[in-house]
Design a protein around this nucleic acid. Sequence first.
DNA 1: CATGAAGTTGAAGTTTACTCTAAGGTGATA
DNA 2: TATCACCTTAGAGTAAACTTCAACTTCATG
Lengths: 130, 130
Amino acid sequence: MYSIQDVSNKTGLSTHTLRYYEKEGLISGVERSQGGFRQYTDEDLERLGLIRCLKNTGMSIQEIARFVQLTHEGDHTLEERVELLREHRERVLERMAEMQEHLDKVTWKLNFFTEKLKAYQAEQKKDKQA
Amino acid sequence: MYSIQDVSNKTGLSTHTLRYYEKEGLISGVERSQGGFRQYTDEDLERLGLIRCLKNTGMSIQEIARFVQLTHEGDHTLEERVELLREHRERVLERMAEMQEHLDKVTWKLNFFTEKLKAYQAEQKKDKQA
DNA sequence: CATGAAGTTGAAGTTTACTCTAAGGTGATA
DNA sequence: TATCACCTTAGAGTAAACTTCAACTTCATG
C-alpha cells in the first residue's frame, strides 16, 4: 500500500495531478483507509503505468478515460479497446514521422546558421587584426 | 503577393492563427495594401515554413518569438540562435526517444489485448455452438 | 457605384490540463 | 494526548494556444 505521496514520487505525477486523474476517471477504485486516505496498490501503479504511456504519446485525458471505462465494462469491450489502441498507435506513428521530417528541416537550418556563424567569426577576427 | 486567406490555404494555419502569430511577434513586417490588408510575399511563406517546423517539433510560441527577434537583431546574434536551435534539437530527440519507448509499451499492450480478444471470440463461438 | 465577400482591430471566450487555495480531518510519534 | 506533517474536498485560478465576436473598412465585380 502506497500513500499518494509515495505514488507521486514513484511516478513523477504531482499529488494534485493524481487526484485530478482520479476525478476524471483515469484511475478509479483506489482503496481508502478508514479515515479516507488513498491507499494505492501495485496494481494501481501498473494501471498508472499504462496511463502514462498513453498520456506521453499524446492521448487526451478524455480518450484515456474512455479507454479505462471500457476496461471496466468487461470483455465484451475488448474489440473496441483494441481498435482504440490501434488507432492511437497509427496516429502516434504519423505524428513521429512528421516530427522527424520537421526536425530534419530544423537540423538543416541549424547547419546553415552554424556555417554562417563561422564565416561571421572569421570576419570579426579579420576586422580586429586590421 | 498572397492574401491572408491564400496563406491560410497554403499553410493550413487559420487566418485567425496567422494574425495571432503576427501579434505574438512570430512573423513581423508583413506588407500591407493601401487599405491595410496583409500582403504576404514568398519570403514570408518561407519564414512561416521555419516557424511551422519549430512549432510542430514542440517549441512554444514564446520561444519562437525569441528566435525571430534574434534574427531581426542581426548577425551578432548568430551564436545565440545556433545555441537555441541546438538545444531545441536535443530536446526534440529526447522527446522522440521517450515517445518511442512509451509507444512500444502501448504496442505491447495492444498485442496483449489482441490475443485476449481472439480467446474471447473463440469462447463466444463455443458458447453459441453449445 | 453598389454590394457582398473578405479583411481589419481589440477584446473577450474556449479548451486542455493542470495547479493552488481554503477549510478542514487523520495518523504516526514523542 | 498533543502536535504536526500529510491527507481530504470543492472550487477557484493559471497558462498556452488558439478561436470567436463585434463593429467596422476595403476590394473586386457586375
